[in-house]
């Protein structure tokens, strides 16, 4: 295995300093379920000479929830820790939809949501539900911190807005308003331990009359980054959420993406799956919203 220097700083500041000092030759290590495989299998470019672990940075491991403040997930918190936090499954079921299917239970016990986001695979299952819930990312650099909307966090496959020396500190998710619902579903040929061919998260808020007050539809694995299907969302806003309206939204969403075709399925198949999954997830979101 490639040799590297290993750092385990205690603070975010120190981590940012080490990262900025060593430049692009350094990598942040959280759960390591992506990074270590990349190093061992020589994928995604040259292996780093400097590895900076977040293990000892306490503030990165916190997961906090209150109805008023919403949910804050430290970038170093594992998926299992996040799912075990009170309020998460109840108020953010789609986060559970998207993270309890990442790898296996063993993987979820060590992998982090922060790592899943920073690895920036177009198929990352945690991204569409978080974006659909309107999450923001808190980023720290050597000198300052900044906040970006998670939907603006990704810039391409494996690429994010993080600059050299910056690291993801936490994800903040506002508590959904009343009469809201959200579901994430992915399509994979195998029931688990598989990579999404298409992943769809639909978030819907109804008004008092039962019309769609707000809709956010996020598509994963069908473009270089997770994307919002904005035209599909627009088609629903202010409408009665009938089966026909959802079917139309699914078709519109399928046109908004740019899927690849490969050995697992054609681009046309992925578009159709998008349309199907938009309808199904929107139906499920509606049901939650009407509870």
């Amino acid at each position: 295995m490639h040799k590297f220097a290993y750092y385990a700083p205690q603070t975010v500041k120190e981590a940012a300093r080490i990262l900025s000092k060593n430049g692009p030759n350094s990598k942040l290590l959280a759960g390591g379920t992506d990074l270590l495989v990349q190093i061992k299998e020589h994928v995604k470019g040259p292996a780093p000479d400097y590895v900076v672990s977040v293990k000892n940075i306490r503030e990165l491991h916190d997961v906090k929830f209150s109805a008023r403040a919403g949910l804050t997930i430290g970038a170093g918190a594992t998926i299992s820790e996040t799912l075990a936090t009170k309020g998460v499954q109840e108020h953010f079921p789609a986060i559970a939809d998207g993270t309890a299917i990442i790898g296996s239970l063993q993987i979820q016990n060590i992998a982090t949501i922060g790592g899943n986001l920073c690895n920036a695979a177009p198929s990352a299952d945690s991204a569409p539900p978080l974006i659909a819930y309107g999450a923001t990312a808190l980023i720290a650099g050597p000198r300052a911190t900044r906040t970006v909307a998670l939907e603006d966090f990704f810039t391409g496959p494996g690429k994010t807005v993080l600059k050299p020396g910056e690291l993801l500190v936490s994800i903040h998710v506002p508590t959904p308003p009343a009469r809201s619902g959200c579901q994430y579903v992915r399509h994979t040929p195998r029931a688990q331990m598989d990579i999404a061919m298409v992943g769809v998260a639909s978030f819907i808020t109804l008004d008092r009359k039962g019309r769609v007050a707000d809709a956010r539809i996020v598509l994963g694995a069908v473009a270089p980054t997770p994307i919002r299907a904005r035209q599909a969302e627009d088609s629903l806003r202010g409408q009665e959420p009938t089966a026909d309206a959802l079917r139309a939204a699914g078709d519109i969403a399928a046109r908004e993406e740019s899927p690849i075709g490969d050995v697992r399925g054609s681009a046309g198949y992925r578009r159709y799956m998008t349309s199907v999954l938009v309808q199904r997830t929107a139906q499920a979101a509606l049901k939650q919203a009407m509870r």
């Binding site: 399509h187 046109r255 198949y269 159709y272």
Partner: peptide, 19 residues
Amino acid sequence: LTPWKVWERLHERSYTPHS
């Protein structure tokens, strides 16, 4: 019988979303 192949046979066409 991968999902893609089954879908293609059941739908007998390649899908293009109609506008």
